[in-house]
Structures are given as structure tokens and as C-alpha cells.
Design a protein around this nucleic acid. Structure first.
Lengths: 161, 161
DNA sequence: AGACTTTCATTGGCATGCAAACGACCCGCA
DNA sequence: TGCGGGTCGTTTGCATGCCAATGAAAGTCT
């Protein structure tokens, strides 16, 4: 270990307060006990696993390809809603995918505001190769949990989404 | 809200595959069933709640204040590790907090590489007012769950972090 | 002491993510 | 038929978030 004056604050063992309010100090707040912090950390680990296993696609780019594969062509905003990205975000994602030739865009005939996005041949092929890896990523993300716990976590996350 | 909630049973002969692989289509991938997607969506909802309840502070800015209040002054990188932000990210957060006079920075005496960050009077006061709100944010984030489920989710998230 | 390894802070670059503002366009309704 | 409200895509601005590279400063090992 390093001896560079790095007090790791061992703190007390004690029966912790699961809510994060701690009577020991004035404000009663422990960052690491908050749901938001835990969600962020879990997500961070997941993203690290993702980029290690699928270096050529970002999670969002893959999500867009997956949804296009799942549901077929859609307008940009539709696709954004389906993947939980706002209009500004999905635009950047689609632009980058289009620049790589993984998706194609064309204006809609019925509604001239809309920009229809569809998978290209290359995009479909890449997705087909990537999908199994994506399942492995989910697997590795949930690796610390037993099968029963994985289903439970999934269900709980879905309910607070 | 979706049918993914009943994933706790062994299921029948050919029920849903909770892992997200679905034999019905070629690639066998359902985006909305993946842990990463659910983590992201849950986090998204949490961030929305946060910014609605605490418009003057971002989650990361608040986290930095909270950690400083909890552990006292620390170097920038130390604080980053304590709040799970990398060196590049924590720098921006501290810069913005310093510009608002909520934290102060000064070079360390013992180690001239280090930049010691501490709460200012104003920062401590703001945190004192914000901490109760932060607890409410956690509360609202977990509102859809029963107390027992909240503890369970927290524990599961901690294990995959 | 001198070389090698680490750590610290900073910077540049790329990719989200969200809010707000815009112009174009569609639709229901008076 | 014309108009106001809502949608679509775009752009700008700000705040993460991470990687890689860099120079300065410590620490370690011989």
C-alpha cells in the first residue's frame, strides 16, 4: 500500500443506518448509502464491462441498432423514445452510426418532418455479431448475483424506472 | 410497470426468458430486458427527481459537497475517488463549485502536487440546507418500493458495483 | 545519488444527456 | 378554410464521464 498520508477513514463498524441518515454527525447524510450513488456506481461498472467487451460500439449506439433490429425502421424521435434517449441525444448517436454506414436515413413520404432510420446491411451484420456479446455483458454485470437475485434486481429496477 | 415484474417464478415449459434472449427472433435480444438498460433508466428517473428538487446543484456537485462535509478537506483526486469520479471529471466539478464560492482550493504543503479542497462557509451552509432534500430525493426515487424491497435493492446494487 | 515507478493535476478529445429555442410541418377544430 | 396546438428535427449551451498524454513532484530501489 501507499504511505502517502492517505487516511482511509476506517470509521466505526456499528450497525449502519440503511437509509443513509446517520445520527453521529450533524447533517445525517452518507453519500454511499444513497440510492442515486449506488445506481450510478452500478451503471459505471456496467459501462466499463461494456466498453471492454464491445470497444467498437458505445452502449447507446448498440441500443439504437438493437431497437432497429427488433422493431424495424423508425423515425429518429421514435427510436429515441424506444431507447430512452431525448431528441438531441439520439440525433448525435444516429449521425455517428450513419457516418459509419451502419444505419441509413431518408425523409418520410407521409410526414415530411420525419427522418426514417433503418439498419443497413453492414449494421444488421454488426448487430448480429454483437448481440451475443451483449448478452455476455449482461451476464458479467450480474455475475456477483445468484440467478434468483438477478431476476429480483431486474424486477426492482423496472419498478423504479 | 411492465410484465417483467413476475420474474420470480420458475415458470412453465416455454415461458419468457428473463435474460433477454428470445427464441422467437433471430438474434434473441430484447433491449428492455437488459440490466444495463434498466440501470440507465432507473438512474435517469433518479436524475430527473434530483434536478426537480435541487435545481441549483447537480448530483455530482452535491456529492462533492457531501463528501467534503463527511470527511473534511481532501485533495482533488482523493475526493474524486471518494465520490467515484475520475480525475478529469472531478476537476470540472470542483472548478464550478469554486467559481461559486462553495469550496476553496489551496496547494498542499507536504505534497506540492496536491490541491487541497475544502468547504467554505457558504458551501457548508448550502450543504446543511440541501442534505434533508437529498434524503427526500432518495425517498422519492425508491417510493415505488416497499421498505423491505428498498433495502434489498440497495444491497443488490451495492454487490454489482 | 540516480534511475525507475507512481501519483497528482491538467488538458484535449469524443460521446452522452438534458434544457431551451427555432423553423417546418401536421392535425383537429371553429 | 384558416388557425392554434402539438410534433419533428436541429442547434446551442452546459455538465458530466472517460481515455490518453503530459509535466511536475514523490517515493522506491539499488
Amino acid at each position: 500500500m501507499t504511505a502517502a498520508g492517505d487516511a482511509t477513514t476506517g470509521k466505526g463498524p456499528a450497525g449502519e443506518d440503511p437509509q443513509g441518515a446517520d445520527p453521529r454527525d450533524g447533517t445525517g447524510y452518507r453519500l454511499t448509502a444513497q440510492a442515486g450513488h449506488l445506481l450510478r456506481r452500478a451503471n459505471q461498472r456496467h459501462l466499463a464491462i461494456f466498453s471492454a467487451r464491445m470497444p467498437d460500439l458505445t452502449p447507446r449506439q448498440f441500443a439504437a441498432l438493437a431497437k432497429l433490429d427488433e422493431e424495424g425502421p423508425a423515425s429518429q424521435n421514435q427510436l429515441g423514445r424506444a431507447t430512452s434517449m431525448d431528441a438531441a441525444t439520439i440525433k448525435g448517436v444516429i449521425d455517428r452510426l450513419a457516418r459509419r454506414g451502419l444505419v441509413a436515413t431518408e425523409p418520410s413520404q407521409e410526414d415530411r418532418r420525419r427522418l426514417i432510420v433503418s439498419l443497413t446491411e453492414a449494421g444488421a451484420e454488426l448487430f448480429a455479431r454483437a448481440a451475443p456479446v451483449a448478452l455476455e455483458i449482461t451476464e458479467e454485470t450480474l455475475a456477483p448475483l445468484a440467478p434468483e437475485e438477478r431476476r429480483l434486481l431486474t424486477a426492482l429496477l423496472d419498478r423504479i424506472s
